[in-house]
Nucleic acid binder design. Sequence first.
DNA 1: ATGAAAGCGCTAACAA
DNA 2: TTGTTAGCGCTTTCAT
Lengths: 359, 359
Amino acid sequence: MAAQQGPRRGKRSDKPTIADVAALAGVSVSAVSKVVNNRPGISPPTRQRVLDAAEKLRWSPSATAVALRGARTRAIGMVAGRAADVLAADPHFSVLISGIEAELAPADYGLLLHIVGEEPSAEERAYRRLAEERRVDGVILTESRIGDTRFELLRQLRLPAVLVGTPWRDDPVVSVRAGGEQDAGIREAVDHLADLGHRHIAYVSGPEDRVHTVFRRRVFEAALEERGLRPTRIVVSEFTADAAVRAVRQLLAEPQRRPTAVLFANDTMAVAGMSAARRLGFEVPRDLSIVGYDDLPIGELVYPRLTTIGQDLVQLGRSAATAMFALLDGSPESAQPPPVRPPSLIPRESTGPAGGVGG
Amino acid sequence: MAAQQGPRRGKRSDKPTIADVAALAGVSVSAVSKVVNNRPGISPPTRQRVLDAAEKLRWSPSATAVALRGARTRAIGMVAGRAADVLAADPHFSVLISGIEAELAPADYGLLLHIVGEEPSAEERAYRRLAEERRVDGVILTESRIGDTRFELLRQLRLPAVLVGTPWRDDPVVSVRAGGEQDAGIREAVDHLADLGHRHIAYVSGPEDRVHTVFRRRVFEAALEERGLRPTRIVVSEFTADAAVRAVRQLLAEPQRRPTAVLFANDTMAVAGMSAARRLGFEVPRDLSIVGYDDLPIGELVYPRLTTIGQDLVQLGRSAATAMFALLDGSPESAQPPPVRPPSLIPRESTGPAGGVGG
DNA sequence: ATGAAAGCGCTAACAA
DNA sequence: TTGTTAGCGCTTTCAT
């Protein structure tokens, strides 16, 4: 009742504010504030009246006002330093984001996405703005690079950061990654192939400026050597389908040193590689076995279904978000999250016994 | 100079504020504000001093403060009402987002993403919070539904909205869509198949609560009839790979009324359907021709490459962002953006002459 | 051309 | 237990 004379400037029916709620509930604004923030010192009846008033007015605290006041922004940032089309082609990001969102949404946090080009300067600018403009409480990063400068930048900017993946050297950053045997997946894949009789196994790696790229290649080499096999061909290229196609052409060109199995650095490349092989007249898995990495949905869509090394990207995303929350709560000790299930081989249809025409 | 006694509360080296810049430049805060907002009434020398000071302090206006003051949030919202994993499997969204970001980024706008579950209530809640908390200046929607309630909600919330796609009935909403012949793609596809001798063409549609789903099916039927063919089988299902597989099984089950070509409502289903057919022993395109819709990157990755109906999703995203800007600038007349190139057939390898074993 | 001051909606000291 | 009030960093009249 007793709506004050004219309801604030000009337009009526403007968004309600904390003052409106306070007025309707017949209490002070600080009482309302205490209620919505679960602060002590409010009697149950008062509390209820405030809640009712807020409900009736469909009011919830203005995120910007809260943020300005110094509290949380309730938003986490993510900067993708890749060309937009590359990103669209590789669902890796989407899956990760799904996981992150799964944690953010219930906490009523939003994900502020910035897709900037490949140039590092654009990336840096994006982080700077995120920090300077105080748009987010923290950022989640992926794909740490060798000699990564982002963490240093973020520390300067005092922007809490969580990395999905393995940090470079001892970059003092909170990171979430697969637990225990991070190399388990690749080892299993190599064992799987070796057990199937493959002796010529190739690995198509991605650009070696990434920490995980190098790590995976090394694990591959080590695993092969342990089985007494020599790493047959390592083709380093880019993370694109085209690169995968070129790599396969090259691998299959010379009959005498042709591999009977190929491991790819990710599923997109593996699928592209598989198609390329078939276009060249090789049957999969009869003439060539193919293994991917990531276990993206696409692997189950294609024919034959892609054998791949699965890492739980969704869970990785969730953990990253959880870690971020811990970090923001000022408990960096507990921020290092429990490890995620290690990557493991998911045998499907694209691998089979060695001994086709390519043998 | 003459930094005031202690530089504000506690910690020094806190983020600089407009006051710091003003002090360093030896002017008032309002002068600084005018400069950064390109307001008139500032002499060139003063202007320069302010710019220099801001530069030196690495200051840029706090987004939250600006937003609170009533100006722009510089963020656009997007709510995905789908299960996170579905979303990850269908890159449709990612591609669209690429396009949107391509426009937002240069304007220094961010994209605030919310992935909520399938339940409509969660979706509504997300929009409400976006509006009530004033987190974004507007939202971009996709996939208008028949009887869509979102636009009414958004109007209530006074949240500017732009739809990518065809609105339901005359939902008074700004929308971006393909120009001219929106049915061009499907007609071309039907012509293409008919010219190849196909007489039994099936269409695997998605859930018919979507506006575009129904539209596409109708165009398909009309196009077939114009060629004197009867729409052979319409299987309505969900937008998932599994559904596509089931549909294909069903279509290929009865030899006497088996189609020789199938059009799918999207590329993901088409790829899944193609695999299913091949698993059942049908060669593509020898025994069965397949056509997708969207022209997602996956279509070029698989073997055989997918013939599909391409719509420029990236451009659609860009246009949506552009339209949003116009809307926010208060020029709704100019908000309706120029139409995007109409969808058109992209013939690749998954279609061929009718007359395989299935004929 | 420039500056002082009043808020935007909220939280947290501090009073009562 | 409750209310008063001073800002958070910025924009914008309104004076000067």
